[in-house]
Amino acid sequence: MAAGGDHGSPDSYRSPLASRYASPEMCFVFSDRYKFRTWRQLWLWLAEAEQTLGLPITDEQIQEMKSNLENIDFKMAAEEEKRLRHDVMAHVHTFGHCCPKAAGIIHLGATSCYVGDNTDLIILRNALDLLLPKLARVISRLADFAKERASLPTLGFTHFQPAQLTTVGKRCCLWIQDLCMDLQNLKRVRDDLRFRGVKGTTGTQASFLQLFEGDDHKVEQLDKMVTEKAGFKRAFIITGQTYTRKVDIEVLSVLASLGASVHKICTDIRLLANLKEMEEPFEKQQIGSSAMPYKRNPMRSERCCSLARHLMTLVMDPLQTASVQWFERTLDDSANRRICLAEAFLTADTILNTLQNISEGLVVYPKVIERRIRQELPFMATENIIMAMVKAGGSRQDCHEKIRVLSQQAASVVKQEGGDNDLIERIQVDAYFSPIHSQLDHLLDPSSFTGRASQQVQRFLEEEVYPLLKPYESVMKVKAELCL
């Protein structure tokens, strides 16, 4: 049975990233139509530049190519590739079939990587351009969430054990800070992308030097003109047959890092959902379990974690691919890159769409948070109580021993009897502590235990987050809708 299948058929496997999760716009960027249309555009740009620099290419040939950029006979191309065992030459023939007058000058002087690699770089750039505003929107939604809850005390956790208090907004800023680093890295790697350009079979530009009869300047002009037509500021000066596969490492490393950030955020949300302090959106008709109707599973956060793990592992592909590119190139890269580049971007696209949807509907339960604080705060307040007693004339050592005994009794009630923490009640009825009984409410005010959390939130948002989001103001209103 021949390899390949009808990918629109229910009898043929289709990647869930495309069929179930990723956005239509990201799927289109990695589609065959987008790819092969870009090949034709690159052939047109090459012909236009070659004509401008004096090669015998007519206006009629150029116009014929322009008129057929979208006229792609995919069936013919597939048949040609089956016959020739070469995808680029299959599309040269297919393009030439609908451009008979231009057929002889299509791909003039070029090698397969002229269309293959340059198209990949265009796709990487455009895919990054799709991700950047999506990530900015996630940051914006979380920034709104953090600002609104900047002063809401909550129990902090280290080692997932109760620690000092923080605020809900401050905790959210930990998430935002990681995503801001990801946004900066995505922008950097996007701006650092260079075009492969017009380089020939081993990167020496020998074929173009021959076409222009040894004119170095025209060869350099050709490279520059096509690079500018493709919208790049610069091209690699040095290439082998391909652009260095280190570029793929750079791009997928940034995406993998984004995956790590999203995994951490969504894990926190899942843990908070278990504590009943916070939940992701839950639709009115949504079913959490087929057997347990009360369940409210954090399905979206779980999906993000599941896909983020996949995204983090994909960076190993370009690392290994770059390491086995012998001399000017081997074909070890080809099949692998067809999979890992598309999957990385479709996965990143999915987790950003999902995280935006989550961040637009996060639900906080202040009463649950308050109750958990009441359970733990008495123990945390013991040092403040000791200091207040010393100020009232008591002995630190005597007070410490009193607190120690009462704390152990209260802990026994919590752990052995399943009761509430009654340390404060014990202190309130103990005559030894009568000098500070009137101060206990103040000493137990949760806001006095959150330090500068709310001020940190305000400063972080104003100095770091809002300036970073400013270039994306025009796209901030787009909502994230999930079908599944």
Rank of each mutant, 00 (worst) to 15 (best):
T450V: 10
A22V: 11
A411G: 13
V262H: 02
I105N: 12
Q210S: 12
E50R: 01
A2G: 07
W43H: 14
D317A: 07
F379Q: 07
R33S: 08
A348V: 14
M316P: 04
P133W: 14
L155S: 01
L341M: 11
V465L: 06
E25Y: 11
R149F: 12
D216L: 07
R300H: 12
R37F: 11
M225N: 08
R85D: 00
I106L: 06
K170M: 06
R149A: 08
H442S: 13
S67Y: 11
R149T: 11
R149G: 08
D317E: 05
Y13M: 13
G231N: 09
A78F: 07
R190L: 10
C483M: 13
V226Q: 01
T313S: 11
D215K: 15
P100D: 10
T202F: 02
T201A: 01
T111P: 00
L53F: 05
A127R: 00
L314V: 08
L346H: 12
R83F: 14
V92N: 07
G259S: 09
S438W: 06
D332L: 00
N384E: 03
I265N: 05
S301G: 12
W45H: 11
M278P: 02
C180R: 02
Y472L: 15
V475R: 15
M387Q: 15
Y13Q: 09
F74A: 11
H93E: 11
D215I: 06
R40S: 00
E79L: 12
R396T: 04
V247S: 10
E80V: 13
V390K: 01
L193V: 08
R374D: 15
T450N: 03
E25R: 12
L258F: 15
V475Q: 13
Q161C: 03
C172R: 02
F449G: 03
A273Y: 02
K276Y: 06
V457H: 06
L121K: 08
F212A: 06
C266E: 09
A2V: 04
G104F: 08
L44W: 04
Q205A: 15
L124Y: 09
I62V: 11
D129R: 12
L53H: 06
R452T: 14
V138S: 13
Q439E: 15
M312A: 05
A77D: 09
W326F: 14
A388Q: 09
T52E: 15
F95T: 06
L155Q: 01
Q285G: 13
T204P: 04
E360F: 03
L183Q: 08
E280D: 10
R40M: 03
R300C: 14
T119K: 04
H159K: 01
Q409A: 13
E81L: 01
C483Y: 08
E279S: 03
R37T: 10
L377H: 05
H310E: 03
